[in-house]
Amino acid sequence: MSKSTHQMVQMDRRQALKVAGAGVLAMGFATAAHATPEDAAMAISKLGGSAKADSAKITIDLPEIAENGATVPVNVTVDSPMTAADHVKHIHVFAEGNPSPEVISFNLTPSTGKADVGTRMRLGKTQNVVVAAVMSDGSVHVNKKEVKVTIGGCGG
């Protein structure tokens, strides 16, 4: 710490500004760190099984444009008989562009009767919402949908 302070003193103003600028940039980057599609894919790969992408079994109901990113309604249905032998065990919802991709995991049982779940979530920016369904046989189905999130509306 003392060393860097010492160095700072020796810098001319322009150099100091450059360093300060880089610092601000780095800080900004750290606070604005967002998950990436890879982070979401990583989380899904941990669910086991080979994930079937673009699965027609999963229907994601989301607004095309969210009225406000703080409260975005989402509903997910998975095509499944929901019997003891063949049912959906988990429905995981990921947001690719949020600070961390996990949103919510629903845990279902045959007594759930129908794989149809809903909630409301926070989305920091326009991004894909990825849904992974884990079936009772261990198979994983994945689907995704994009939501546009507008920022800079009227505040208060």
């Binding site: 009225e67 509306g153 505040g155």
Partner: peptide, 15 residues
């Protein structure tokens, strides 16, 4: 939705 809470007319006017 933006507030993630319920608020008064005056809070909105202030906004």
């Amino acid at each position: 939705l933006k507030w993630q809470g319920m608020g008064s007319l005056h809070k909105r006017l202030g906004g």
